[in-house]
Nucleic acid binder design. Structure first.
Lengths: 219, 219
DNA sequence: TTTTCGTATCTGTTATAACAGTTATATTGT
DNA sequence: ACAATATAACTGTTATAACAGATACGAAAA
């Protein structure tokens, strides 16, 4: 925990409190209360809240404060839609530039992902981290820096689903070579195939999360 | 100017100052100076700056403050890339749902756009406004609320280019039926065609802005 | 008992001032 | 005159307290 500014300290404290489920969902959160649990001033908390709002982790209503949004199918689909739009563009750009060195680099990262045997909570967390690194690497290598920035911002939200995803374990085995295949499709010299592959990849994740949601594992 | 909060007052004042070119580009802006021209406190200015940074109108370096980014081809291409990703997704979703009523509504808005004869500065501003309304309407009708929110946020940046676009006038005539054709392609029952049409539409705009940039009309 | 009014205490918002760091200027010592 | 140092004036950041509004509680009046 080597945060330099007080706002970042507040950001991490609040984010952690959210991820650990220590804050009520759907109710407005008192800024003074947040300031006390983050051990900072209100203004640092407000800056942190602005950032969490931008990352779609919180939603703000002017003059009424901020709250943890209640999940709905529409909300999950909506956020996945935005992410899919950006990721499909990444796949398109990667396919167009068609650089063997970049392809090799990404393929190695994908292999690293596929080889993780997800058993137990910490290995699932490890997989989630590597998976995130893979997608951010692809965004980085797409050549469009802003695409990476936007995905970095949105990607943080997926942390919220990690606990629910601890139940993956036995399902993940179906995904062996999943990412290697994705990378293979992306560098198939056919932009349409690259986009389609990424489209299916994200849709698969969406479907998985919706199943989790329907089972009530998100509340 | 009926802003309710002080932060919004600061936001509008700073945005206006940027659009009117009253602030130096590339240099760090003093928050106290901004507070004096916005006639508010520093903290309201800081909240406004956070929002402007979020909209990619300003860029922030921690502990070093905020500045108006110097335009580069890479930056323009990058932001257009993000926007294209989202808009192509909008086209895809509109094509999939294939609702004749929605198609009709959007076609009317597109027609409204195409019929504007852009002569003089104010009519160009009027066209820009209607054009923005058209794209936001499509995003709204895509059924994904978050797509619209993201486009709304990014779209504000295009205001920066409006002054340069005042020189459109004679070129815009080539674009007659441009938007009607776009809408026609989107509702062609072929998702690939819809995406391709939107892709070309955005690429056209990008190309136009790059030409403007190369002519030095952005500085 | 029910209604009304006032007070006390929440809420988000914002202004002031102090803190911490850097930069530039001026002053001092050689 | 030149160099080193101290001082002054900036910078972003943040803590404190006050402001404005809404809400809840309770006492007093009908």
């Amino acid at each position: 925990m080597d945060q330099r500014t007080s706002s970042e300290k507040a950001y991490r404290a609040i984010l952690q409190a959210i991820l650990e489920g220590q804050l009520p969902k759907g109710e407005f959160l008192s800024q003074r209360m947040l300031a006390s649990i983050a051990d900072t001033s209100i203004i640092s908390v407000r800056e942190a809240l602005k950032r969490l709002e931008h990352e779609h982790i919180l939603e703000a209503i002017p003059k009424w404060g901020v709250r943890i949004p209640l999940e709905t199918r529409e909300r999950i689909q909506g956020l996945y839609g935005v992410r899919e739009a950006l990721e499909v563009m990444v796949a398109y750009l990667l396919c167009l530039q068609d650089d063997p060195l970049v392809a090799q680099e990404i393929l190695e990262k994908a292999t690293e992902c596929d080889l993780i045997t997800t058993e137990g909570k910490e290995s699932v967390d490890y997989f989630a981290q590597k998976h995130r690194e893979l997608h951010l690497l692809m965004a980085e290598r797409s050549g469009n820096h802003h695409l990476k920035l936007e995905l970095e911002r949105l990607g943080l939200r997926s942390l919220l689903y990690q606990s629910a995803k601890s139940t993956w374990a036995n399902q993940v085995d179906d995904w062996r070579n999943w990412h290697r295949n994705l990378v293979g499709e992306i560098f198939s010299h056919d932009p349409a195939r690259a986009q389609e592959a990424m489209h299916r990849h994200i849709q698969h994740g969406l479907h998985h999360d919706l199943v989790m949601f329907d089972r009530g594992m998100f509340v």
